[in-house]
Amino acid sequence: MTERTRAPDQHAGDEAETFVYLCTSCPLGCRLEVDAMDGDVIEVRGHSCKRGIKYGTQEHSDPRRAVSTTVWLHGGPCERLPVRAAEPVPKAQVREFVRSLSGLVVEAPVAFGAVLATDVAGTGIDLIATREIVAEREREPVG
């Protein structure tokens, strides 16, 4: 668990370099060693199953993360509206993706899955609402 992921080096070398990742595919948490040269994965070692190879290759060549955050909400039952990126965001752009939303204010009502912004922070990825907010008059008391 304490094994730290090494960020891939940017420089292209002549020899294969080894990068270490902790596989998150299952609780076993295999310590994967990924050999790569010029960004291309040559070999994945340390895995116990096929999922480790897939994880190691993806994590080294194009790491992406599910991103969720909140934005300001006006006229809802609470002040923040939960939102998420419509698809996984490249790991290096996660912070910028979230930071760029700081000024966004959404007015109720909001449909479940509504697209609130497109091409967030130049990633080409949409922002969608993960909670339905009904109009104030529909939140009525027991009659």
Binding site: M1, R4, L22, T24, R65, K91
Partner: peptide, 16 residues
């Protein structure tokens, strides 16, 4: 001596 949360959260919430 071990994290009490899921491994994927150690990687994606701390290491990242």
């Amino acid at each position: 001596p071990f994290a009490s949360g899921l491994g994927r959260n150690v990687v994606q919430c701390l290491q990242d």
